[in-house]
Amino acid sequence: MIDAATSGEATAVPADLPAFLDLENCYQCGKCTAGCPVAERMDVVPNQLVRLAQLGLVERARRAESIWQCVSCQTCSTRCPKSVDCAAVIDALRQLSFEKGDAAGSQRRTVLFQEAFLRNIRRNGRLNELELVGVFKTKAFLDDLSIPFLFKDAMLAPRMRAKGKLHFKPDRVKDGGVLERMFDRCLRQA
């Protein structure tokens, strides 16, 4: 048996995925998928994503809708008998998909949401919920022109306001400059 880690040979992790993923350990028992709360909604289920990555079919894996359906609950990684961090594999696939800008069409909303979230933090340091809703809804509308989705949750706003849960004064960090620089450094290195 060749132990890649000790023999110094290249690991079985494809070059475009981080080496710490230890994909070669997966023996396809399916336990990750068995406990996944959204597996029934997935086109490519978690153990299949790991298998595709293991075989170097990274492009097929990153184009799966399921990587954006994953709710990041860590059940798969927690239960894997071979300590494969399946949730981290999915994160790595999402990062690649985001970089290449080729997320599955049906999952565009989730990608737009996460993107709007990051931009929001970059601008404010802390999440400004109203701005996030506004930006996300506008972007999603420009993307798929769904009017019902644009106005969905509009009914929630007055109820939230009555409960003192809507804030019109953003809670911003004082040192915004450092955030801007941190984001630059991280996104440049990506």
Binding site: S72, D91, R94, Q95, Q114, L118, M182
Partner: peptide, 12 residues
């Protein structure tokens, strides 16, 4: 950073 950071950019 929440899910947005770990889903989009590991370093962040």
């Amino acid at each position: 950073g929440a899910t947005a950071a770990h889903a989009l950019n590991h370093k962040l």
